[in-house]
Computed example of a mutant assay.
Amino acid sequence: MALIIKLLAGILLGTFIGLYAPHAVTQLLLTFKVLFGQLLFFTIPLLIFFFITSGIASLPQNSGRLLGKTLGIAYLSTIIAGIVAFFAASAVVPMLAPESADVAGMTGTILEPFIQLEIPPVFNVMTALALAFIFGLGIAATRAEALKNLSDQGRDVIKVLLEKVIIPFLPIYIAGVFAEMAAAGTVFDTLKTFAVILLLAVVLHWIYIVGMFILAGLKSGKSPISLIKNMLPAYFTALGTMSSAATIPVTLKSVKSNKVNEDVANFTVPLCATTHLAGSTITIVATTVAVMVLHNALVVPSFLTMLPFIMMLAIVMLAAPGVPGGAVMAAVGLLGSMLGFGETAIALMIALYMAQDSFGTACNVTGDGAIAVLVDDQAKTETSTS
């Protein structure tokens, strides 16, 4: 919650500086934004490589069928959530944005940073994804402990970088983005659309949760209302922790109160805490459409153009870092490589996502409870027929 407050303070401070401060102050903030952005984009391919490699290599090897079912449901759930978010945002957002909206608009002053510095990434995002799957599957197949330890240690290094450097300095980075927009004269149109898209994302989260538990109730013969009621402690805990992993003890208790087999609950809840991020996907897809509409260098794509992005995003979400903002950090590379997002558009995405991260996490955690019910029902069905 402190991070959200700092982020909102960064938006307000950046807007004030861009509107009223001397240009030199705004340029100083822009200089930080540019330098920090270089570090961010250098880190993203490494994040994708180490986290996905470590995630695949760490999957349990002695529970194949249950593992496959759980991951399959989580992946399908994430894709459906992304598709629903795309259609909802595509219908709502264009009605909110002015026809001439442009986050890099020319109605005000266009300022340049004092220093320009380039830090090229070691490899691009798609190379990172390909390497991650090759090494992750290879380590799992050959049980190469040295490579497994290397991937785990690399993941830990990037996680420390996220927690100690990138996430804490994000509010200043976002302040630089809004200072630039305020100086250019586009900040108020952007903020108006921000408020509506955040509300839309939260509404979509609840539609998704209700839909998942109606399905789980139909499959298991249990009351969806009762199932949701039992998951509310996990939902509200996640609002505070902003972390699916930190909420696992409460999620486990809530899932078991829904009469899920203890072994199934103990397996699915920790696994889904790091692999099932449907709520985060809803927010990312909805905010992607919003930023595209606001930025006239981009247009809202067709569904067939967006579907590959959603499918790749669902894969990346399977191994997104379990820290506040980790999901959007993992998605940054795909936004640039698949949808052509530049630095300003990506910064807007980060600001939008971080402002509602707690609600996305709460949706993720609650959805884990529905998946546990579905997996438990499937396991019971197989046991009774065997």
Rank of each mutant, 00 (worst) to 15 (best):
A297I: 01
L271S: 06
T142N: 08
S223F: 07
I350T: 05
Q61K: 14
L204Q: 01
A104P: 00
A345Y: 03
V365T: 10
L47A: 12
P324L: 14
D156M: 06
T305C: 00
L170A: 12
L374W: 06
L96T: 03
K259L: 13
E163R: 14
I167F: 13
A314L: 05
L191P: 00
G82T: 07
T288Q: 05
V332R: 02
F49I: 02
I73G: 02
V328D: 15
G240F: 14
E112A: 10
I79G: 06
L30P: 11
A320M: 06
F188Q: 05
A273H: 14
M306L: 09
A85E: 07
Y353F: 14
S386P: 01
I52H: 09
A330E: 14
F49N: 02
K219N: 02
L162W: 07
V365H: 08
T385F: 06
M126L: 15
A57Y: 03
V84R: 10
I350W: 04
V157F: 14
L137W: 08
V202K: 09
L277H: 14
G340T: 08
I282S: 05
D368K: 01
D377Q: 12
T186E: 02
I158W: 13
I11Y: 05
S358A: 15
I115K: 03
K159G: 07
D189S: 10
G240H: 09
A372T: 01
K192S: 08
P120T: 08
T366L: 14
P120R: 12
M354I: 12
T43W: 08
V84P: 07
F135N: 01
A320Y: 08
L13G: 13
L232P: 11
K259I: 04
L35W: 10
G342L: 07
L147R: 04
P249F: 04
A88Q: 09
F135A: 10
L200K: 12
L232Y: 11
R155N: 12
P171K: 10
T275Q: 06
L198S: 05
L335Q: 11
A278H: 07
I119S: 11
